[in-house]
Nucleic acid binder design. Structure first.
Lengths: 157, 157
DNA sequence: CGTTATTGCGCAATGT
DNA sequence: CACATTGCGCAATAAC
């Protein structure tokens, strides 16, 4: 419940440079005039050995072309990644919530099952008692009245 | 295991300024090792209105004193927050895992219960059948052999 | 008021 | 090469 959607500006920073840019999209230009303008462009670009002759690029185990923060290419990649990140995190959060709900459902189901077990156990117990009673009656050679009816009522049969 | 002694460099920036600040040394994988010294000490601090008179500061709806990235104070707060963030996220993740495990446990429990219900149901069914049979026998005025023994065997009583 | 906790966000490294 | 995940820091804000 926090929509920081207030600032339309994006401040990007990292290796030592920071860039402000309007989120207005399309124009990926970074305007830093507003604040105390400060920009640093990465230096240290190891010359690419393979590209020197303007040829192919073998298994180039190149290090890292210090991505130019200015590059349109770069900004595009960043924006896409930011999107992906957002998506990923949303999914992650959703999943967590789903899991939590699953727990609740399972807990409910569990209670239901426990109740059913309780009921069945009770029924069984009654039946067994009846049986025992009946057995005794038989042993005593006595014929009780409506034992079966009683049972049928209990079981709902 | 969460007490990384903060190995590398801190790049701080915000409103348009960035500051590199080396904490210790050796930046393992970071690429800033070669970055030329870059420091910026921007400071655009709007004079504090309330403190001008050196007196009280009522409902001061002050803006934001653009926290000086240099400030030792600032760095300390940041570091503490970073720690808190890490802690919080760890907890969050842990909780998610626990929840997931809870689901598994509940699922298992559920299966167990279902099995029990199946068993009880079966037992009940058998008992009822015996009762019915017995009832019929009674109705036919016949005395079957060892029905009760049969029942007792089935129920393990 | 100050501190910690939580959250959204961007970057970069890394995984698929 | 594209997208997905993950660790990490920052800042805003909620919570204490």
């Amino acid at each position: 419940m926090s929509r920081p959607s207030q600032p339309k500006i994006n401040i990007t920073e990292h290796n030592g440079v920071s860039v402000i840019q309007t989120q207005a999209h399309a124009s990926s230009s970074s305007l830093l005039g507003a604040v105390g303008g400060l920009q640093q462009v990465p230096q240290l670009v190891p010359a690419n050995p393979s590209s020197a002759g303007g040829k192919a690029l073998p298994p180039s185990k190149m290090k890292k072309p210090p991505a130019d923060k200015e590059s349109d290419e770069y900004r595009q990649r960043r924006e896409r990644n930011n999107l992906a990140v957002k998506k990923s995190r949303m999914r992650s959060k959703q999943k967590a919530m789903d899991t939590q709900q699953r727990v609740n459902e399972l807990k409910e189901e569990n209670e239901r099952l426990e109740a059913k077990i309780k009921l069945l156990s009770k029924e069984l117990s009654v039946l067994k008692d009846l049986f025992l009673e009946h057995a005794h009656n038989l042993a005593d050679n006595v014929q009780p009245p409506s034992v079966v009816d009683d049972l049928c009522t209990t079981c709902g049969v």
